[in-house]
Structure formats: structure tokens, C-alpha cells
Amino acid sequence: MSTLSFHDVRVRYGSHTVLDDVSLEVTDGQTVGLVGESGCGKSTLARAAVGLAPLTGGQILLDGRPVPNRGRRPVQMVFQDPYSSLDPRMTVGESLAEAMPERLGRTARQAEIARLLALVHLDAARAADLPGRLSGGQRQRVALARALAARPQVILADEITSALDVSVQGAVLNLIRDMRRDLGLSMLFISHNLAVVRYVADHVAVLHNGRIVEFGPTAQVLGAPRHDYTRHLLAALPGAVPLKEQT
């Protein structure tokens, strides 16, 4: 695994600045959480790293070299919506095989598919199923397996649990933690849910209006926030402070 670093990244659509000089580093084997409100630019940052959003300024480097935005990216992404992230007409096995870096023979390919499915705790028999037969949580695991199939150096997870039911969310979060432990994955984990980020991330970056307002070890940022906006986010959590009934 490697280090993904964002240097003064700026993304602008017309006159609207989505990301304003964002610098962030996802170091080797670390999971960095990225939190913020919807529309603050979280997803744009991830999409920029894989060439799906054009940079207006700055650069995104992987181990000191620019991330290629053509061909197979060494940085892979897992998307939010489990119902749109798999081609409904391709079996699980075909989706995984498509992302593999080299063309394998039939048996080698089957073995690799089984290995990938085992990594995300799915039965190898699932390889023959179409996504329509899978639940949301199973689809999200297949999407994760597809990202792993490309043998990435860094994985970007964009709100991967927010469309899932809570009982399934737990299983996916456990999986993310297992994979970091077993595979040493570097990951940028984007979520609006602070409790989820607290559970999986080593470091947290707080994004507000296209700027990173706070960055540090998870326990420090969420336990002793220094920026007003971080405090504001934490105070808004249900159960954090009793609801004021008089405003």
C-alpha cells in the first residue's frame, strides 16, 4: 500500500468553488475519515482522485507521482448506492473479472473470484448470481470486492454504508476494519456519520465549505475538537445534548 496525498486541490464548476485548496494525506495502511455536510465537497474530493472530476488547481499524488486518470487506476473507489454500483446485466463474477488487472485463464479467474468473495465474506457460489438476487449489503460487499480485484494501492469509500440498514451497516464496517488489519489497506473513508467514522478511522479530516477545517487523530478530533464547526457537528448528534425545547 502507498500514500495518497492531495496538494492544494481546487475544483471549480463555473463560478462555484467546490474544493478550495484542500491538502490531505492518506498515509500507508491508514484509514482516514472525511466528514462534513452534504454539498461540502466530500465526494468531489474522492472523484477528483480517480479522474471523475476535473481539477482546477493543485495535484493529487500517489507516492509522489501524479495519479493517472486514464486506464486502470491504482486508486479504486466504492460508491454510495448499492443499487447503481453493479451492472444489473452482469453476474457478480463477470463484474469482478472485468476489474482484474491481467487476463487470467478460466480456472485461475474462478480461483481469483472465489478469493475475492471470501475476502468480503461472501460464498463463492454468489459469483454466478446477477445483482438483482443480492441484498443491499451483499451488493456493497461485491462492490468492495471489485475495488480489491483491481489490486489498488488506495481505496476511496464514498458513504458506502449510508444506504444500508443498520444491521447490515455493522457487518460492512466490521469488514472494513478486518481488511485494514489483514491487508493493510490505505483508505479514505467518507461519511457524514461521525459515529461510523469514529469506529473505522485512525485520522479524521473535517471538511466545511470546500476547506479542511480540522485534521488529526480520530480520538483527538472527535474527543477534543478545536474548530467551532467540529464542535457544532458533534453537538448536533442525537443524544449529544438534550433537545432544547425552547429556541
Partner: peptide, 22 residues
């Protein structure tokens, strides 16, 4: 616009193949 097309592009699938397969 669907995510699986984006995922295929990130996985390095060529434009023609994305068109034909997805």
C-alpha cells in the same frame, strides 16, 4: 451516470468496451 460505469472506467475498461458491455 450510473456508478457501475464510473467503476468500470476507474478499473481501466476502455470507452468502447464500456459502451459495448455496460
Amino acid at each position: 451516470e450510473r456508478d457501475y460505469v464510473a467503476a468500470a472506467r476507474i478499473a481501466g475498461v476502455s470507452r468502447i468496451r464500456v459502451l459495448l458491455r455496460h
